[in-house]
Nucleic acid binder design. Structure first.
Length: 308
DNA sequence: ATTTGGTGTTGTG
DNA sequence: CACAACACCAAAT
């Protein structure tokens, strides 16, 4: 079932040089396989050896790859995705987050909306389906596969994912269908600088926020803004989001709106789960959702350790 | 475990 | 204007 080459990930020069967190796309394909399998078998609490056997890698190599990417060992990851644990988070006991905060992280709470400067497009502009808008786009590497980044003059308007190069046209078409009247220009040079920092949320600065433009209906924008208030490492249920925007009955409508979020990752739609803690769906694949949640836990873990 | 009935918003004809 | 589709949810089998 494993379709990636095992060689390319090993010759990543950035990793050899020990620079930053350079997420190789090839790593993500391995990780995706690993996470998909762990998620499918979490009930039996599989150990490292079982995972390595499934991937066809050595135990040490598997451990290293996984931990480097996620910050959690495979064993810890399984614990993190156990449904009971997700339910704990729902009860407001974001234990990992609290622990990180107690250790004295910068800032009162790491809410996305402090670091993301968002403006909504006017309802009129929204109804014109992007007419008169010029959108530059480009594909870039991310920890979760190839990322499509789209930008207008006023800020980033779209982020999408593709599993690999062959998947890119589908992702592009998916996004273009949302604003069919816009003019699209392939311009990776334009999107590259933002793409480089999008996936380093811990480096975001209040003084230099990510600028995004939300193009959607009033209700959708309302929902998306609310998502920005869910802290990293925590989750919220669709019903809770519905309550937070003053429409306690609209859980289902919230689900639909969350599903149409065009700003994956930056607007953290991956932090919304069913009321039981189950991951209900994700436009770019449920495994990717699982991956992002686990990765964020790992980020917090690293942050907490650094602060000690 | 699975079904059922009540939901709000959006896109389509 | 009606109607189906939906990343929901709580209660009742």
């Amino acid at each position: 079932m494993l379709m990636t080459s095992t060689t390319r990930a090993q010759e990543n020069p950035d990793l050899a040089a020990g620079m930053g967190p350079p997420p190789a796309v090839d790593d993500y394909l391995q990780i995706r396989e690993a996470i998909g399998w762990l998620t499918a078998h979490w009930q039996s609490q599989p150990d490292l050896a079982a995972l390595a056997a499934h991937l066809g890698l050595g135990a040490t190599q598997t451990q290293k790859l996984f931990t480097r990417w996620c910050g959690l060992s495979p064993k810890e990851f399984v614990q993190a995705i156990t449904i009971d644990h997700a339910r704990d988070l729902l009860d407001g006991d974001a234990s990992l987050l609290d622990a990180a905060l107690e250790v004295g992280l910068s800032g009162p709470s790491r809410l996305h909306d402090l670091f993301v400067d968002h403006e909504a497009m006017s309802p009129g502009e929204y109804k014109r389906r992007g007419e008169g808008l010029t959108i530059s786009w480009g594909f870039h590497d991310s920890p979760f596969g190839r990322a499509l980044v789209m930008a207008t003059a006023r800020g980033i308007c779209g982020i999408a994912f593709a599993d690999g190069p062959g998947d890119e046209p589908a992702a592009l078409a998916d996004m273009q269908a949302r604003w069919p009247a816009a003019r699209y220009v392939e311009a990776p040079a334009v999107t590259a600088s933002e793409a480089a920092r999008l996936f380093r949320p811990l480096d975001w600065q209040e003084e230099d926020p990510i600028r995004v433009v939300m193009i959607g209906s009033d209700f959708e924008v309302r929902v998306w803004e609310e998502l920005l208030r869910i802290p990293m490492g925590a989750t919220a249920s669709y019903g809770a989001v519905a309550e937070a925007i003053g429409r306690p009955q609209a859980a289902r409508a919230v689900g639909a709106a969350v599903g149409r979020n065009p700003l994956s990752f930056v607007v953290p739609c991956h932090r919304v789960v069913g009321s039981t803690g189950r991951l209900t769906g994700y436009h770019w694949g449920i495994t990717r959702k699982q991956a992002i949640i686990g990765w964020e836990k790992g980020c917090l873990r690293r942050l907490a350790e650094k602060a000690v």
